[in-house]
Design a protein around this nucleic acid. Structure first.
Length: 1088
RNA sequence: GGGCGGGUAGCUCAGUUGGCCAGAGCAUUCGCCUUACACGCGAAGGGUCCCGGGUUCGAGUCCCGGCCUGCCCACCA
């Protein structure tokens, strides 16, 4: 017999004990790894015994402890997971964390600098290994913190399966995915302008930047016009205004005739003039024609620039035909009509360059107009692709800011600065380092997500009724091959049309994003992350000395590689790609750790220690033939054969999360992953905040559909019939249809995407460390309890609104908390006390329960009403859960427990409960139903209460099924309540409603007359009404709940009476005042 | 510039397909330690449902136009 319950529920005393019981409840055979009550196995799914329910946690970054936003996200997932576990699904909630490459590297780097361990640029001050070790330690610390936080929140993850995006299992998936994309030509190397973070010295994605509005200036710079001189690139002659006037240049005659003419450009970044390689003008500009054939000389640098004509260049407001349009176009307001073109430092200029490549390259020094004037740290430098810096040596070594000042000063000194205007504009900053982003030209790896097998598969995944445009129209850039591949695939692949967004409006965001998607830059110049499994080398220096030429050398190299693979039993584990743009570059991609090792040894073969390399080759089990091929191959590679120093964008491994966590590609290599993929992919739902719809959802969808074969799972919701040949013993690889992989026709990683609100502080600001308004869920748990926190978070989750969370300091601990959670705490306490009351009224323990079920005949009005309310509540809650309407779910329970069960049912049965076994049965079943329904939201208190409820001995009730626990005698694996629709009783609901209305009316009078609660008064009513109350069985409730001494047809005495209207009758209450005999008062006093 | 939300009681928010008196919690006021619960019980006050039009027998809800506000995407010489 459990201890008697204390008067107030204490989360602090209860929650840790419950956690221990959940953890200890793994009653399966040893080796299942301590997943506790929440451990899931593929077996029951593969055998068809249970349906799967699976959620992949959005892996939190290991950069910091979780905040309330995470608490919300994970509470909602846990609610779904717990509810479905109770409903009988084999339920897997896959936990894990994300290495968060750039974020974590930035945080650790900052920390090392604060400690003084790190001074100067990272890459020069520390070895890669030393730094990674530091980050690893940091990661361990935060991973532990995060895991602990999730546990104290009550998250019912399968802890035995916890993953980290950089652990060996996930790394294997990353290598496999990269290799396959590389081999299929969906990964390529390209020179592009990227967002460069000069502090962290890496490329960052658009979404890793933030726009900051800053006060800047427009600078109007004059570039002198010159004539080209044939035969000598540098020799030029000035163009005078009089010449321009002759050519018909408008306004030229207003300038001194013999002075050198100029054009004026407007810029916010004058320092980039050093990289200018053209001047743009709109072909409709009246000045354009007269400038044809002329050039511009870049001041100080002396570079000669062509003038290119392009519609992109905005005409100044004064020149535009439509003055209204011009007035509303801010660009036109400050445009001069001449645009400086700096292709290596501005994305739009880069696009211009791509359109005018020929003419720009012709005039450019060194034959390329992509002149890079910055070092990776964004100081002006001539070491990174700037051949004609001599004239501008005075700027070398300056930071961007210093260079800007100096450029402006130099132009001013030469009379070339026309004016400056203050200007407010937004500038991209790096999320992580807060540095101003520099558009920077560099070599990066890209995934061709614009390919139909990627983008198309994501778009085809969308539910037809959530699409806003047809598939064809949605892919304006679809190329010829992609169309034909679309038509060659079956009209309906397994995942097609099954992706559903909740709320539905987010489907549009998803669709829209894919329509405008650009290829995905996946390389990052960081140290923390998955190293790109590619070795680069250039080989033609030695190879082309032979007769065979470039093409022949390439062929021979490729052939040797095939030989090596065959001889070394490296079947399909190495892949060679030649650089499309640079003819002497080649890339070798390794699929496995062993293949990578062999590539490393290739390098050793022709460098320092060929003997040692040979020994190692033999240790790896390589044959003589393999070694010979390797030696020959190494001859083609120069000593620069090196692994790419870059790491992959974090999202690359995140995109594989639904695959890697389940053991893909090779479940046999990792224990306990066998069968997981078949059983749990596709998962049931992805829960996330809306900020990452585009990034994560899209990429997971594309990768899952690309890497998995069209038919791989045995038990997805959409294929109810389980194929007969499937059993856990069949190795997954045997069932795979290899032909359908790599076509983007595979299954989805999840069927539903649920997007929930974001949590803001009381003023509607994002929660953040720097604002000090962040809230650690552990602090809420300390002040209110985990269940209270979860209840409130659930209740707040409506379909539309973001959540405002006023933050205050807890008076006792000083930690951040919020009075918003009081409701949850009070609610838990209410449940606790209702339970205490019920337990005091119900037979427990020793007396055996009657086995015969009780039925409607023995129920009072209140009982029938309560059962009816339960029936509708269960139905409402099931609907709410199905549609991810968390607020409705919590609200239903709140009303059911507090308003119906406590306020009315418990009060109504107080006079009769002790004597009525039937009523006892209803009370017990109602309470237990509520407790079970509430468990997904408030797991701790309900688990604690359930332990006591199990002791109650009452008769069963026909129509209520409360299935037993499946594991450890715990509520978390007990069944979800099932209530037969027959227990719905509209008559009882209506009758009880009337009773309630009458009691309320009486109480209103009592309150108006300030009656003491215990004072009994008399109700005078028409005989018909009294008869009616008797017939529905409501009379006793009116008497007890209204605190009446009698209901009578006698006329009321004239004094001390009040009237009320009920339905159509006029009733009177008497005996209100103390004029009555002193008995009543004396009684009250005595009772005290 | 494009897209998506939100503007309902002092505060934070519900209000599904148009339909009886617009709801909840907190706060306020009044009365209660009525023994399950003061983290509670009973009751009360409090709303031009942002503004202006329209559709309708009927609009917080649907349509059009404004205003305010938040977020996302694109762009910014």
């Amino acid at each position: 017999m459990p201890e008697p319950l204390p008067k107030t529920y204490s989360p602090a005393a209860t929650e840790p004990l419950i956690t221990l019981r959940w953890d200890a409840a793994d009653d399966r055979s040893a080796g299942s790894g301590g997943g506790g009550a929440f451990h899931a196995e593929p077996g029951p799914v593969l055998s068809g015994e249970r349906k799967p329910y699976c959620i992949f946690i959005p892996p939190p970054n290991v950069t910091a402890a979780l905040h309330l936003g995470h608490a919300l996200n994970n509470t909602l997932q846990d609610i779904l997971v717990r509810a479905h576990r109770m409903m009988g699904f084999e339920t897997l909630w896959m936990p894990g964390t994300d290495h968060a490459g750039i974020a974590t590297q930035a945080v650790v780097e900052k920390r090392l600098r604060q400690e003084g361990t790190l001074k100067g640029p990272l890459k020069q001050s520390m070895t890669r290994e030393a730094f990674v070790t530091q980050v690893q330690a940091f990661k361990d610390e935060y991973e532990a913190t995060i895991t602990h936080q999730l546990k104290v929140m009550g998250c019912s993850c399968d802890w035995a399966r916890q993953r980290f995006t950089m652990d060996p299992q996930c790394a294997a998936a990353v290598r496999e995915a990269f290799f396959r994309l590389f081999k299929d030509g969906l990964i390529y190397r390209g020179k592009r302008l990227v967002n460069w973070d000069p502090v962290l010295q890496t490329a960052v994605a658009d979404d890793e930047t933030e726009d900051v509005e800053i006060d800047g200036h427009f600078y109007y710079l004059r570039y002198p016009l010159v004539h080209p001189v044939k035969g000598a690139a540098k020799a030029v002659q000035p163009v005078t205004w009089s010449e321009l006037a002759t050519r018909g240049y408008p306004g030229a005659s207003e300038h001194p005739a013999e002075e050198q003419a100029w054009v004026t450009v407007a810029t916010t970044r004058p320092e980039t003039y050093l990289g200018d390689t053209a001047i743009g003008v709109n072909p409709h500009d009246p000045r354009a024609k007269s400038l044809r054939g002329l050039l511009v000389e870049l001041p100080l640098v002396g570079r000669i620039l062509p003038i290119i004509e392009d519609d992109y260049v905005v005409l100044p407001a004064a020149m535009q035909k439509d003055p209204d349009a011009a007035a509303s176009d801010p660009k036109a307001q400050f445009a001069t009509g001449f645009l400086k073109v700096t292709p290596a430092h501005d994305p739009n200029d880069y696009d211009l360059y791509m359109r005018h490549k020929a003419v720009m390259d012709t005039h450019a020094p060194g034959g390329s107009a992509l002149i890079n004037i910055f070092a990776p740290d964004a100081t002006v430098s001539d070491k990174h692709g700037w051949p004609d810096a001599a004239g501008a040596h005075l700027f070398l070594g300056l930071s961007r800011e210093e260079a800007r000042k100096k450029v402006v000063a130099e132009f001013y000194a030469r009379g070339l600065l026309e004016e400056t205007k203050p200007y407010k504009h937004t500038v991209k900053h790096s999320d992580r380092s807060k540095a101003v982003i520099e558009p920077y030209l560099s070599d990066q790896w890209y995934v061709k997500v614009t390919d139909d097998r990627m983008r198309g598969s994501a778009l085809r995944a969308m539910a037809p009724d959530q699409r806003t445009s047809s598939l064809d129209a949605s892919m304006p850039h679809a190329s010829m091959p992609s169309r034909s591949s679309t038509s060659s695939t079956p009209p309906s692949a397994p995942g097609d049309g099954e992706l559903r967004f909740y709320p539905a409006r987010y489907a549009k965001t998803f669709e829209n994003w894919h329509e405008n998607i650009r290829d995905w830059c996946i390389s990052r110049q960081l140290w923390w992350g998955h190293r790109i499994p590619v070795w680069r080398f250039s080989f033609f220096e030695s190879a082309t000395t032979s007769e065979e030429g470039v093409a022949g050398a390439r062929q021979r190299c490729a052939r040797l590689l095939i030989d090596l693979c065959a001889a070394a039993r490296l079947d399909d584990e190495l892949c060679l790609q030649f650089d499309g743009s640079e003819s002497d570059r080649a890339y070798l991609c390794a699929r496995t750790v062993r293949a990578a090792r062999i590539v490393d040894l290739l390098k050793a073969l022709f460098s320092q220690e060929p003997e040692e390399a040979e020994t190692e080759f033999r240790e790896l089990g390589l044959s003589r033939d393999a070694l010979r091929a390797a030696s020959e191959l190494s001859y083609f590679m120069d000593a620069n054969l090196t692994q790419d120093p870059d790491v992959l964008d974090t999202w690359f491994s995140s995109a594989l999360w639904p695959l890697s966590t389940l053991g893909w590609p090779d479940p046999d290599k990792f224990p306990d992953t066998k069968g997981l993929l078949e059983a749990f992919n596709p998962s049931s739902v992805l829960c996330t905040a809306r900020e990452i719809i585009t990034l994560w959802v899209s990429r997971m969808t594309m990768f899952n559909r690309y890497f998995l074969p069209a038919c791989h799972s045995v038990a997805s919701d959409t294929s109810p019939s389980v194929p007969s040949d499937t059993s856990p013993s069949v190795a997954p690889s045997l069932r795979r249809s290899v032909a359908s992989e790599g076509r983007g026709t595979g299954p989805l990683p999840f069927n539903d995407v649920f997007i929930h609100a974001m949590i803001q502080d009381g003023e509607g600001r994002k929660m953040s460390k720097s604002l000090g308004n962040g809230v650690d869920p552990r602090d809420i748990i300390e002040s209110h309890g985990a269940d209270a926190m979860r209840f409130v978070l659930c209740q707040m989750t409506t379909q539309t609104q973001d959540v405002r969370m006023p933050v205050v300091a807890d008076p006792t601990t000083g930690k951040n908390t919020s009075p918003k959670f009081d409701i949850g705490r009070n609610f838990c306490n209410k449940l606790w006390n209702a339970t205490r009351f019920a337990l005091s009224m119900l037979p427990t323990g020793s007396s055996p329960a009657p086995s015969a079920a009780v039925g409607p005949r023995s129920f009072s009005l209140a009982d029938r009403w309560m059962l009816s309310r339960l029936t509708t509540a269960v139905a409402d809650i099931n609907t709410a859960l199905k549609n991810y309407q968390f607020s409705d779910y919590a609200q239903s329970l709140y009303d059911l427990l507090w308003r119906d069960f406590c306020d009315w049912y418990l009060e109504a049965i107080k006079p009769t409960i002790k004597e009525s076994p039937a009523q006892q049965a209803v009370l017990a079943h109602a309470l237990e139903t509520i407790v079970r329904l509430l468990h997904p939201i408030a797991p701790f208190i309900t688990e604690a209460i359930w332990e006591h409820l199990k002791e109650i001995q009452t008769a069963p009730i026909n129509g209520i099924t409360l299935p037993p626990s499946r594991r450890g005698g715990l509520l978390c694996t007990a069944g979800w309540p099932e209530i037969a629709p027959t227990l719905r009783d509209e008559r009882a609901e209506k009758d009880f409603e009337r009773t309630r209305a009458l009691v309320t009316a009486i109480r209103e009078i009592r309150a108006k007359h300030n009656l003491p609660p215990k004072r009994r008064i008399t109700l005078h009513a028409p005989a018909a009404l009294i008869k009616d109350l008797d017939s529905i069985g409501a009379r006793s409730y009116v008497e007890s709940l209204g605190t009446l001494d009698a209901i009578t047809t006698d006329p009321a005495p004239k004094d001390a009476a009040a009237t009320l209207r009920f339905e159509s009758a006029e009733l009177t209450l008497s005996n209100l005042a103390d004029a009555a005999p002193a008995g009543g008062v004396a009684d009250t006093t005595a009772e005290r």
